[in-house]
Nucleic acid binder design. Structure first.
Lengths: 179, 179
DNA sequence: AAATGTTTACCTCTAATAGAGATATGTTTT
DNA sequence: AAAACATATCTCTATTAGAGGTAAACATTT
C-alpha cells in the first residue's frame, strides 16, 4: 500500500467512527460521503486486507452471524495515528469529472432538443439529491454525536452547492428555451 | 480503444473547435474545462495516436515549425459522427473526489487550529478560482463565436457553484471560530 | 557570446481505481 | 416451494492519475 492510495484513509475514517464490515463501509460511503468522495466497491475488500496486513486494523468474525461469514474490522492505535496524520496534512486538489458539463461545453454540435433534455435530466437529478440531503439533515439535527458539527458542515456544503447548481440549471434552461 | 474510455471525446471535442497539437489540447483543457473535466497529460498523446489509427482524426506535421516536430491533428467526418453520437447520449453520473470535504467529515479527530487552517486555505483557493472565472468571463463576452452560449453557460456553472462554496466556507469558518 | 533558466512540445511507465461481474447465503414474496 | 430480492464478499480488466523523462526554442542574465 503506497502513500498515494487514498482508499485506505476513507476506510480508516469509517472504522474510526465504529467497527464495521466491508459491506457496512460501502453502505456508509453511499449514504454519507458519496457526493464528495466515492469509492469503487471492489476497492474496499482488498484495501481492508492490506490495512490488517499493515497493522492499521484488526479483523474478527462476527459472532452474531450464524454460519455466514461477516468480518468486522476495528481500527488499531497505529491506524488512528496514520489517519490523523493524513487528516492534518493539506488536502490535495479536488478532482471532478462532470460529463454533463463537458457535453454542454461542446453542445454547438447537437440539436436544441437534446440540450434541453440534458438540462431537464440534470435538474431532475439535482432536485433528487437535494431531497436526499434534506432528509439526512432532518435525521442529523436530532442526534447527539461528537462528529455532528463536521457531518453537518459537509452536508451543508452539498446543500449549498446543489442549490446553486439547480438555480443555474433553471436559468440556463430558460435562456436556451428563448433563444 | 473501448467504448468506456472518455479521453477520446474531449480530444475530439477540442479538435471539433479547431485543429490542434497534443500540447494545444492540454492547454485548452487547463484553461477551459479543467474545473469540471480534467485529463492527465500522459493520456493525451497515446489517445491522439489511437484516434488516428481509428480514422477519427488525421495528423500532419506543422509546416510553420522549423525543424521542431509539432503534430497538428484534424478531426475527420467519422470523428465528428462519433463525437456527436456521444454528445447526444445521456451523460453519465459525475464523479467527485474532494479531499478537503473528506477531511472535514472526519475532522473530529484533528485540532481546531488545523480545521480552521484547512478552511482558510479552501477559501483562498475558491477566491482564486472565482477571479480566474471572472477574467475568462470578461474575455468571453467580447468574442463572436457559435460556441459562445455553451461556453458561457458552463462558465456560469463554475461561477455559481464556486460562489456558493465560498459563502458556505465563510459561514462555516465563523461557526467553528465561535464554538 | 556564453551560461542559465524557462517555456514549449512530446512521450513513457506504473500504481491506483472505476466499473462490471461472479458467487453464495439469507429473507421476503408469490 | 419457487422466484425474486437483499446482503456480503471477492476478482478481474480497462482506464487513468500522477510522476517522470527528453529535448528544442526562447528569454534573461552575466
Amino acid at each position: 500500500m503506497s502513500e498515494r492510495s487514498r482508499t485506505k484513509y476513507i476506510i480508516l475514517g469509517m472504522l474510526s467512527i465504529e467497527p464495521s464490515s466491508g459491506y457496512d463501509i460501502t453502505q456508509s460511503i453511499k449514504s454519507s460521503t458519496a457526493y464528495f468522495w466515492s469509492e469503487s466497491e471492489g476497492q474496499i475488500y482488498p484495501t481492508l486486507a492490506k490495512c490488517v496486513a499493515n497493522g492499521l486494523a484488526t479483523c474478527k468474525e462476527d459472532p452474531e452471524s450464524n454460519n455466514r461469514t461477516r468480518k468486522i474490522y476495528t481500527i488499531t492505535p497505529k491506524g488512528e495515528k496514520v489517519l490523523n496524520e493524513w487528516l492534518e496534512k493539506k488536502p490535495q486538489e479536488s478532482l471532478v469529472r462532470n460529463e454533463f458539463l463537458l457535453k454542454l461545453f461542446f453542445a454547438k454540435n447537437i440539436s436544441k432538443e437534446k440540450i434541453l433534455a440534458h438540462l431537464e435530466t440534470f435538474i431532475r437529478e439535482e432536485k433528487a439529491s437535494l431531497d436526499a440531503f434534506e432528509k439526512i439533515n432532518k435525521q442529523l439535527i436530532q442526534i447527539e454525536d461528537p462528529h455532528k458539527p463536521y457531518w453537518l458542515a459537509s452536508l451543508n456544503y452539498g446543500i449549498a452547492t446543489t442549490k446553486a447548481a439547480l438555480e443555474w440549471a433553471q436559468n440556463t434552461l430558460q435562456v436556451f428555451k428563448k433563444s
